[in-house]
Amino acid sequence: MLLRDQVNKALDALSKVLLGKEEPLKLAMTCLLARGHLLIEDLPGMGKTTLAHALAHVTGLDDTRVQFTSDMLPADIIGVSIFEPAESRFRFHPGPVFTQLLLADEINRTTPKTQSALLEAMEEGQVSVDGERYQLPSPFFVIATQNPSSQYGTFPLPESQLDRFLMRITLGYPAPAIERDLLKGGGTRHRIDQLPVCLKPEQLVEAQQACEKVHASDSLIDYVQRLLQHTRDHAEYSYGMSPRGGLALLRCARCWAWVHGRDHVVPEDVQAVLNAVVAHRVRAADDVASREGDRLNERLLREVDVLGA
């Protein structure tokens, strides 16, 4: 069985748990394939945790869930060295971060100190405690969820940390018909265990490598560059996209193309992942709460010609 078919089978399986959410599921898978981390931003009860669990299950990854609270300390995530009287030395007890898929629930409930400990681990793929480095497992994938920051008792992630997440997606309310099914079925959480395991972790790594080989032509690179330039040249943006954002966009477009069975990227791939990759990296000039990224992206697509000129 081809690797790509297995990935698509996994996606099919996932959509049985999260009904009518094919698009966010595909984006989440793309993010995983692109070796990035995913931020899901939505209200409580929209299926964020379900998505994370189901994704871990079908890809055969170990998963750990950490519920972030305001009194949490970095050691609660990373782990701690404890003195062992029997051995007369400190021994490192790894924290929940030592897992393949970490679900960091409500990351904006905790203090910036703890947030940045996690985000550093995400960036480096390793943690250092007492001068010792500990390698995190591979693949290492973080799905963080966050309540919209306008709610009380939250510490919104600053722009520099938002940038660490490859994608930010929202799930949104289900369509009426699907919600009726959902109500009849009495929830879907219990179905997760019945899902088949479609991928082995090694295969996932293999798929990740395959994605990197997807061809991006000069025409396409030009298009991506024009998109980036547009965000820098126009007054409606408070600040434009960074080169890292551009690389992220191209990486995601490659994975999206691979999932859709292409060995080259077409502009539609870029457009499909654009909102998830770009919306949290730009800010409208007149927008304080950083909520307007989607609106900007719509205009961005309308105004930048695929063929140039």
Binding site: V266, P267, V304, V306
Partner: peptide, 9 residues
Amino acid sequence: REPQQSLAH
């Protein structure tokens, strides 16, 4: 053609 449409599309 809309600007965001590729030629093939």
